[in-house]
Every structure is written in structure tokens, then in C-alpha cells.
Simulated scan of single mutants.
Amino acid sequence: MQLFATFELTSFIEMAVVTLEKKGFPKEKVFIVTLDNRKEDRMVFDTIHRSDGTSLIDIGAALATAFAVIGASIGFELAWGPIYWGLIGAASGFILGFAIRLFTEKVIKKRRRLLKGYHSEIIMIVECKESEAELVENILFNHYALGVAKIKNV
């Protein structure tokens, strides 16, 4: 059986390896791989092949509707009439909503992603018997593994 665990780059990895050695697992049964984390910023605009599930036009559509209604209502008293002022209101509401959403994605959510700071930087693979899997899993979680997966050898 193989157990896969992800860790942050801390001294707890070394402590986990030492604990596993004390419990009778030789160094040859423990394999550690470092990951390269993404360096470039995430893309804000989606492509046809990739989408992150966030929409930039949701606030724009709502503000376009609201500004179009207000513009058309006020347009009855203005020179160009309600249709032009409704279209002007819709365009300005959409642009304002799009700008608000773009600002929140680029500035505010980027700060949140940087503040979270939990990055998987190490993968540890432990080869063990099926009866020892629970012990190894407990050791890995006690040494602050971010996640553990078990795979049975067939």
C-alpha cells in the first residue's frame, strides 16, 4: 500500500520521517518530492479552453439594467428622449459594473490569495503494509500533513 501526503515546506517533514523510522519504516520506503509552485499571476479573462468559474459581467448586467431604467425615466424630460438616455444609462452601468468586478478580481482577491499562504510544496510517498496504513496516516496528520491519500497495490 502507498500513502501520499502533501506538506508545506517546514521542519515537520523531517520530524515525520524520523518518527516513521522509529516505528520501523526504513528510509527506502519513504520518498519525498518537492513541487514547483506557480510563479506567474492567474489570468483574469477566460479563454475557450479554460474557465475559472467567476464572471466579470454579473455586476455589470445588474447595474446596466438599473441605470437603463433610471436613464429612461429621466429621459422623458430631457432633450434626447427616453430611448437614448436608457441606452446611455445601460452602457454606463455596464462599464461601471465591469470596472468594479475587474478591480475586485485583480486587487482584492489577489490580496486574499496571497494572505492565505497554504501551498503544497512537498509530496511524501510512504510504502507500507495494509495493516500499517492507519499508523502511518496518523503519524503524517500529527506532523501537519495538508492531505493524505491511500492507494492499494494490486
Rank of each mutant, 00 (worst) to 15 (best):
Q2L: 15
Q2F: 15
L3M: 10
F4T: 09
T6C: 13
E8G: 04
T10R: 13
T10H: 10
S11Y: 11
F12W: 12
F12I: 09
I13F: 09
I13T: 14
E14Q: 10
M15T: 15
A16S: 13
V17L: 14
V17K: 12
G24W: 12
K27D: 13
E28Q: 09
E28F: 02
E28D: 11
K29N: 06
K29G: 00
V30Y: 02
V30T: 04
I32P: 03
T34F: 11
T34D: 14
L35K: 09
N37A: 07
R38Y: 06
K39L: 07
E40L: 10
E40R: 05
R42I: 05
R42M: 09
F45G: 01
R50A: 00
S51M: 07
S51T: 08
S51E: 03
D52Q: 06
S55I: 05
L56C: 04
I59A: 05
I59L: 01
G60T: 10
G60S: 10
F67G: 01
A68T: 08
V69Y: 08
V69H: 01
A72T: 10
S73H: 06
S73C: 13
S73G: 05
I74H: 03
F76E: 09
E77R: 04
L78I: 12
A79I: 11
A79Q: 05
G81H: 09
P82T: 09
G86K: 02
L87V: 07
G89D: 00
A91S: 08
S92L: 08
I95V: 11
L96N: 02
G97E: 00
G97N: 02
A99P: 04
R101D: 03
F103S: 00
F103L: 04
E105R: 04
E105Y: 12
K106S: 07
K106I: 12
K109A: 05
K109M: 08
K109F: 08
K110L: 14
K110V: 02
R111E: 11
L115V: 15
K116I: 15
S120W: 11
S120H: 15
S120A: 15
E121G: 01
I123C: 07
I123R: 12
V126T: 11
E127D: 07
C128H: 13
C128V: 15
C128A: 10
C128P: 09
E130Y: 12
E130H: 05
E130S: 11
S131E: 05
A133W: 05
V136H: 10
E137H: 15
I139P: 02
N142S: 14
H143L: 04
L146I: 00
G147R: 02
V148N: 11
